[in-house]
Amino acid sequence: MAIKTRRLRDIPLAFAMLGPSLLVLLTFVLYPLGKAVWLGQQTCDVQGKNCKSVGWGQYTNVIKSDQFQHALWVTVKFALITVPIGLALGVGLAVLADKQLRGMRFFRTIFSSTIATSVAVASLMWLFLLQPSIGVLANLGWLHDIFPVIKEPGLLKDSGTALWSVGISSIWANLGFTFILVTAGLQSVPKEMHESAYVDGAGGWMRFTNITLPLISPTLLFTTVVLTSRAFQAYGEMDLLTNGGPIPQDSTTTVTYLIYGSSSIIKNNDGLQAAVAVLLFVILLALSALQFRGFGKRVHYGS
């Protein structure tokens, strides 16, 4: 009885404290999600009005379409380029800088600095490096004598190098983030463990794989999840660097770019846009379930 009244007494306060958040989350996250799912089986006029249901088959048609499958493949490739390389570089840098040496603060600041660049800043910096006519690399004669693709057609315009180039700019922009995370992870590894392993005769590489890596595995998992979801949602890079091109290969048209990109043929088609966006949501959902379920168990969380 007493418990019952207490449960009820807190209701007004709980309502006041949760209400604002709940209102915002319902209005701007859950309502649009539901609406998008519904819109995904509709077709609308150019203003997004007068929507008519055309059947849930629209989702199947989108899944079957060349454009969606291609965009999904590009997105997966983009993740496969940026996540492992970005993670490896971040770990490498963090290990390199994980020593109490004079001047290490200076190097750490440099290594973390790219976190200050937003996607627009980073992409424009790389655009000026890679643009084939006025870009920096294109105007270094000796360099494009060795790698003609820099000049003709340009790293961002060659269907073989475009995605890699965007990927490198993205890895660069995320490097500061990865570096900071892994450094923090490394600092939580107790030094004594290394020392005792050393006494046991373990070499540098063994110490790294047998002690350091397992202990920073929660950090690595978290970083992987964040980098993967960033890769799956990358948009600004493509918008500024390649416009999803080069055409007709659409080498950098990711799923997000297919939805919003200026050269996408569905960008003024609300129904198809919503369908693709919902499918992206489902993919991300499956991916995070996979990452946590399948691999989370193997992650060492300490005692």
């Binding site: 701007f28 309502y31 609406k35 799956f232 997000t256 846009q273 919503a274 919902v278 949501f281």
Partner: peptide, 9 residues
Amino acid sequence: VPLEVTLVI
């Protein structure tokens, strides 16, 4: 829920 799904609405 990724931002992309909710933006247009």
